[in-house]
Write a protein that binds this DNA or RNA. Structure first.
Lengths: 406, 406
DNA sequence: GGTTTGTTTGGTCGGAAAACAAACATAGCC
DNA sequence: GGCTATGTTTGTTTTCCGACCAAACAAACC
């Protein structure tokens, strides 16, 4: 790519990122924020309007933007607001759950437009079966679109270990091993690029990053407490991937000698202490009644002392893992997600206290966040990763990635 | 900064990085590697020669470059080789050890030019004392230079916890707490910028990165096993710093309930199992004879079964920490440094086996490296961090850092 | 001659700077 | 109230510069 074109492409991407993360603004605003002249900003915006990515609009004509606000007696010529055209591009994200298949559609502005769920009948569906069902869901949705070409691709979140090539190395909840699922799905989807497979914890993390704040926190750790324990490390705004894309397997950390259950066969693994099966096994071993997490939570809220003991031990075990993450990565925040996070909500103070005891006085403890009701699903994160890939498609000059904003 | 100038500055930096990391080459080589035309490469090189950073030279005139090599019957006009001018800039790095003060000088090509060591008489010197001694060392050295202006600054490696502001939060080996050492030193040094204070493990990691290979490995973890256990995570080529610059305190990871000693007062901390005091305490508790690491190693090499037991336990404990790092970060390699790494050299196979047992079959184990004799010191790493900061002083266009290649 | 290197010349493109035109708000005056 | 002058901010136009590219050319070897 020739140099001047590269500069222009980068500046276009910077304008798009600004409109995405900050919201609608005028050419003059863009010029100020990007530190270019108004004429340059005008030129870039003209290109983007030409390409159908951006449009002018009148805030007063939009009922949603409560009028009266944003008008602190503005003098001078009124600005023309600019915004991304939502329908310019659509990004698909899917999640292969143990019992259901989820698909969502995110538009150019990063907002979720559609969601689809299909329950899976069989206990251990084959990869081919899943690929076919997912492909059918996608093609059914795409056929409803007036402009199918706006679909830019699909990312798939998988509850297991995925490598860079798109192979699933292991998905315990479905009993899969070494499956080249990406290729399998791509063969069943014509005209739609299967961009990449991602770990479900990474996808969850991306969705939470978007939900909590667009780009404020740069250093965070995300935990996904389910039947296994997944995780994801955000550093410098990026998600750590590791050499083979296998980073973040927090649940496999050997933190002790035993545990309450054995999920993956690794002795003393973190998830043997704090995952859903671990909580239930512990509760049951102590003589507790109930076989589901809901049962346990009911007992806990009813004041069952056994349940309380399980919670105390759980909080202590969790804090050990959090301490490891804290001293190693010094995150600004740790987000605890997944169904088991409901225990964390009931022991927040306890976890924080235990964590602090395991840290030196000089180590600032991270903020612990437990998402309330509006927890975002992995499929949204998967779609957002694709969305973000399109917007982040520029780096140091001359090192452009393969994707194009096109 | 205006745009065209920014592009030029970045290309100049790219040329410098090439000459630094790959070695001397011609304008045509640069044009090919950077994907610009020969005319552009020539223009950039002319600027750099003008600035006194680069020079032409004749390889045949240099005795060091064994002739006959690099001449596989080359046709066409012979190329003029270009290289960095070593004396263009000098970078200082210091290390505040428990018993000595170390200073080294690195030139523009990243090679160590001078080293100075001063033994410290007092057991717990005050920060002011150290600052004054270090300032004296630096000014003494600078006064020997014909061109003092080539000194671009100094980085100081500290065996303790350092935050971004240059404050030392805690340095157990010297019994320091909350000392604004950077300011203290800067006041005693006129004309030389005290760039930053760095953790000694991070500095060690930087030196090893340079020594092992300039930029091949992007994902690695470095351990420094001494009286405490420091560490450093390299991801995407960068060293992880964390929110407050406190990342990498691997020794403080709570990996168990006890340990053989208590270095920092954190129960079950990793360094209570694998640091030098831990090894000696364990050996002594079992009835072993000897009070220094050298004594222990002598017993071990003599076939003392007690010493062997200590080694076995040590390797097992170490592998647990390595497993945590591996599943969390998926590094390509783990470098085990420090004096205690001599144990690792004697148990390499054992460590690798224990580590593999703690990982899932799908997780590729990292390569374990134990530096041989030529272990680089933290002061070299500190200087190299400053050196690298000058060369990495460009990123996405329009987001330039404060440093200039000047 | 063939080949590779390094330089020169003309051209293109993106952005900066400054002037200009447009679209308001306000103030003042009738 | 109606009208005009003024000030302010926005968006566009014009002119210019600097960086790179493409192609031709000169130089230095085999």
């Amino acid at each position: 790519m020739s140099m001047p074109l590269a500069v222009r492409q980068m500046n276009e991407a910077r304008v798009l990122a600004r409109l995405l993360n900050v919201g609608p603004m005028s050419r003059a605003d863009l010029a100020r924020e990007l530190d270019v002249t108004r004429s340059t900003a005008g030129s870039i915006v003209a290109s983007l309007i030409e390409a159908g990515k951006v449009e002018e609009f009148d805030p007063k004509a939009v009922p949603g933007l409560n009028p009266g606000e944003n008008h602190p007696i503005r003098t001078g010529r009124p600005a023309i607001q600019l915004r991304l055209i939502p329908d310019h591009a659509l990004f698909l994200g899917a999640y292969i759950g143990a019992r259901e298949l989820r698909l969502c559609v995110v538009d150019f502005t990063g907002t979720v437009r559609h969601s689809f769920v299909e329950r899976l009948p069989k206990v251990y569906p084959s990869p081919e079966d899943i690929a076919q069902r997912l492909a059918d869901m996608v093609t059914t949705f795409v056929s409803t679109l007036p402009m199918p070409a706006t679909v830019r691709g699909i990312n798939v979140a998988v509850p297991g270990i995925v490598d860079f090539g798109g192979d699933i190395l292991r998905a315990p909840s479905m009993n899969w091993r070494r499956t080249s699922f990406r290729e399998m799905l791509q063969q069943r989807l014509t005209g739609i690029c299967v961009h990449r497979l991602v770990n479900d914890a990474n996808a969850f993390a991306m969705a939470e990053i978007q939900r909590l704040d667009a780009e404020r926190s740069q250093e965070a750790v995300f935990l996904l407490l389910e039947d296994g324990v997944g995780g994801c490390v955000q550093s410098g705004g990026q998600l750590l991937e590791g050499t083979n894309g296998l980073a973040g397997e927090i649940g496999h950390m050997p933190v002790g000698d035993g545990g309450h259950c054995s999920h993956t066969g690794i002795a003393g693994a973190f998830e043997n202490y704090v995952s859903r099966p671990a909580v239930l096994a512990h509760f049951s071993n102590l003589g507790g009644i109930g076989t589901t997490l809901g049962d346990y939570l009911d007992r806990l809220d009813a004041g069952d002392p056994l349940a309380q003991t399980v919670l105390d031990v759980w909080a202590n075990d969790l804090s050990r893992g959090l301490a490891i993450l804290t001293v190693l990565l010094n995150p600004e925040r740790i987000v605890i997600g997944g169904r088991v996070a409901q225990l964390a909500k009931r022991a927040e103070l306890q976890i924080a206290t235990c964590l602090q005891q395991r840290l030196m006085a000089e180590t600032p403890p991270p903020a612990l966040l437990v998402p309330e009701a509006g927890e975002a699903g992995p499929e949204i994160g998967a779609a957002l990763m694709l969305h973000r890939a399109h917007f982040e498609d520029f780096g140091p000059l001359g090192e452009f990635q393969s994707l194009s904003i096109g």
